[in-house]
């Protein structure tokens, strides 16, 4: 009951936020929050560390960006197409990656992502180093013009809420319970008769599709799809957001994304602008050494101890 109130309070805050803060910044936060939640589904609940998740973000962005630029389609179709292609890439990559475990899984996903990175670098439809610029936002269902940032914000918020609820449902479904069982003790899950690799694969595809959703939306927000979205650094960033916020918690990745995007914005305008990567690295090390439960994990511990 208490949690329900908290969730509603956060949602109310999100509804009012664009009146106090710059909407584009908020939309960036929402896109990354969705990306991190999708990633957390894999790392936090299935225990799989994918180090190439940017590829799904970028695939969504490129597909939506390309379709919106080339054909005069409406944004919802562009987004659906981006999600479908991301899910397909996720299916292929997932099938390969779930063959290995632990750190090998991380290395395989990173290497597969680099393969795709070079593909996007050389492919004729991605605009190479320049990326796809001037992607039109279009009109939702052909009716609601998304050019205005305020209108766009509520559209992005709606997408985030849909994605978030889907993840919430997944985690609390029997499927989610099996994922957690695999995370805690894989041999036991196998001996109980679960086809572990199929569960992992489904989680991977779902996570890839949602990361694609975040990417497609991001391409519309910034009207841009570029190599940054598929670079390994982006994959590292989403790991950091999840780790900092608290992996395996529902709100952790959201809080992590808010913190990291906020921190980056703050640093970009200050004297430390050139040191963003260094600061990220330091946060990484601090999280691992002293803070493995993340912000939400630590908060939960404090609440449990004191209330």
């Amino acid at each position: 009951m208490k949690n329900k109130k908290l969730n509603l309070a956060i949602f109310g805050l999100a509804l009012l936020a664009p009146f106090a803060l710059y909407p584009v910044f908020l939309m960036k936060v929402l896109c990354f929050a969705l990306f991190a939640c999708a990633f957390n589904l894999l790392l936090g609940f299935a225990g799989l560390l994918s180090f190439g998740h940017a590829i799904f973000l970028g695939t969504g962005a490129y597909v939506t960006g390309y379709l919106m630029l080339t054909y005069s389609i409406t944004p919802e179709i562009g987004i659906v197409a981006g999600v479908i292609v991301s899910a397909l890439v996720g299916l292929v990559y997932g099938k390969l990656a779930v063959k290995r475990e632990g750190i090998y899984f991380a290395m395989v996903t990173l290497a597969l992502a680099q393969l795709m990175f070079f593909f996007y670098l050389q492919a004729p439809f991605t605009g190479g180093e320049d990326g796809l610029q001037g992607v039109p936002r279009g009109a939702l269902f052909g009716l609601i013009d998304l050019t205005d940032n305020m209108v766009m914000y509520y559209f992005v918020l709606a997408i985030f809420v849909i994605g978030f609820l889907l993840i919430y449902r997944t985690v609390h479904s029997p499927f989610g319970q099996v994922l957690k069982a695999i995370r805690e003790n894989e041999p036991r899950a196998i001996s109980l008769g679960y086809k572990v690799n199929q569960y992992k694969l489904l989680a991977f595809v779902l996570s890839a599709a949602l990361a694609g959703l975040a990417g497609s939306t991001k391409a519309l927000v910034f009207q841009l799809a570029s190599l940054n979205d598929v670079h390994w650094f982006m994959s590292g960033e989403v790991v950091l957001m999840t780790l900092l916020g608290g992996m395996g918690t529902i709100w952790g990745p959201v809080l992590g994304a808010v913190t990291i995007v906020g921190l980056q914005n703050f640093l970009a305008s200050g004297p430390l602008a050139n040191y963003i990567h260094v600061v990220m690295g330091v946060v990484f090390i601090l999280c691992v050494l002293a803070f493995r439960n993340g912000l939400v994990g630590e908060l939960q511990r404090l609440v449990k101890k004191n209330f």
Binding site: G102, I103, Y275, H277, V278, G281, I285, V288, R292
Partner: peptide
């Protein structure tokens, strides 16, 4: 060493952080 007994994924992330710092410093 302080995290040697934790899940090995943590040491992977830790060394990734070190790589980010080194690359960032030399780029600057």
């Amino acid at each position: 060493r302080p995290i040697a007994n934790e899940d090995h994924l943590y040491s992977l992330l830790l060394t990734f952080g070190v790589a980010l710092i080194l690359q960032g410093l030399f780029t600057d």
